[in-house]
Design a protein around this nucleic acid. Sequence first.
DNA 1: CTGAAAGCGCTTACAG
DNA 2: CTGAAAGCGCTTACAG
Lengths: 328, 328
Amino acid sequence: MPRVTIEVLAERLGLSTASVSYALNGLPGVSATTRTRVLELADELGWRPNVGARALSRARADAVGLLLPRGAEDVGAEPYYMALLAGIESGLAEAGTALMLRFVPDGADLAVYREWHAEHRVDGVFLTDLRIGDPRPALLDRLGLPYLVHSGHRIADGWRFGQELETSLLIDHLAGLGHRTLLHVAGPQTLVHEQERIQEVRRACVAAGIALTTVEADYTHEGAAEVVRAAVQRGPDVSAVLCGNDPMAIGCVRALREAGREHRVAVVSWDDSVLCETSFPSITALQRQPYETGRESARLLLSGLSGSWREPEPSSARLVIRETSVPA
Amino acid sequence: MPRVTIEVLAERLGLSTASVSYALNGLPGVSATTRTRVLELADELGWRPNVGARALSRARADAVGLLLPRGAEDVGAEPYYMALLAGIESGLAEAGTALMLRFVPDGADLAVYREWHAEHRVDGVFLTDLRIGDPRPALLDRLGLPYLVHSGHRIADGWRFGQELETSLLIDHLAGLGHRTLLHVAGPQTLVHEQERIQEVRRACVAAGIALTTVEADYTHEGAAEVVRAAVQRGPDVSAVLCGNDPMAIGCVRALREAGREHRVAVVSWDDSVLCETSFPSITALQRQPYETGRESARLLLSGLSGSWREPEPSSARLVIRETSVPA
DNA sequence: CTGAAAGCGCTTACAG
DNA sequence: CTGAAAGCGCTTACAG
């Protein structure tokens, strides 16, 4: 079938392509009746702008990029990312903006940003998993490519993730169950938000009179099982464990089971998902609404692209209490 | 910084933009030395084609689309999809083709294909989860938008998914453990590959002398738990269960646990993931290499886009034996 | 082997 | 309120 372009519309209506363009884009410069005629014909013929042509003339891609930096296996293991992805995409789709998704091996990310920029592929990008000394913001600033750090807000010398509320939900819950000894299995300390969490957890434990031990693991269930195993052997009096994500919470429960203590030690996870829900025993977890926060991130980036960065909505995490919420 | 375009390159080299274009695209029409000079300068200045301009003049988007039709929750629950996504993207990236990803509510998919086509957003699309009487192939044929049914191959009147090998891996394993009674918890029978599986499983069970009961569930752990619970109450002699995906396998194990039989009944899952790996007891599952099959699908679609559909490689699933592989 | 020119389908000053 | 025209950055017959 012949492609329907604005020229086709213009010819059939006896107008110039300029008028048709003004009409289609809701710009002044055409009478109300002309506009209606244009819109009706466009609708009837199923006209849609050729994205290439529009991108070229507007010097805008109407697309934004997201790089998932970790190996496919890790990302697949965390349902959090799929929900986040779906949320981001849904927020973008409402504005007619496309999502460019790439999974890149460690270290290849900077090259992709340069490529995207040079090719005019994207108007902006999302950043997740900000690391200490992360080179990405500096590169993007230099390129002039707008970006949004997911869940972050800018402070003088970096980014904050505002996890005070989440921390108190978790710690207050454990304190309320009577726990006075906590093992915090944190994620990689190369991540800014994980360092921030450690500080927050420390503060909350001091306030709640909880003795805290912090260990680091790599976000995998194996890694977490290992550190929990070691901790249980070292001090069999551990009464509660806080895990940085859901695979680690699963690994933790497994290590506790090996020690015959899976129904005696409280476990809470910083992320919720079907993993926590279907675990045995099922795991109390922070429901952080990745789908909703993804939508919010999309709206924020879009606001920035159209000239004025909006303030982020406060996060609305809630705790889902399950079987691992055992008293001390 | 000023955009580097082929015009910039042409000026600096004292050439026409045509020659520069020929050189950059490896086309005949320029001398070897000219080509080298062009490529070197392009590299030095970091030139990359403006995708909008290229799409417009070539009438090609250099992008393909993938719609994930189910709600974000369901998709997030199945790690299979994230790995598939990563594989597809990685296969496309090697050819410089972008992936357009959309999560659409039921029924909205056809409109998106029309949109993509009219906007020249994509050169082709992937189809997953083909349904009985699925309207998508007909629409895409009509639009002239090339498509690939993931894991499928075309037969006279539809598509086949070639699951004989996978079926025998599963059934032979259970037969080898001495099981003679099988409950098959199949996924939605609206899906072509699920109907095909039922046939294959039936055939394999007849061959192996296994008495088969087939029930349908909705790919969720709750749904599977319910049907397994009912089956166990009806006939407490069920000795093995085959589940259509990993969340259902988890639900099955839970239902068996409620009946105190989780260490007595064999469970195998048609998909593997961290869910099966970390379950207690851990679940024997078919490792279907979604990342690799995703890459293969990408290569196949790309081959079709460049004019000649390649034959798919045979699938290379293998069974990962775990704790639920208990003898009869 | 190289260059001048038209064209892809839009947008957008500018003149009427 | 409307139209003729240039321009976005490429590609590609066509003529030299």
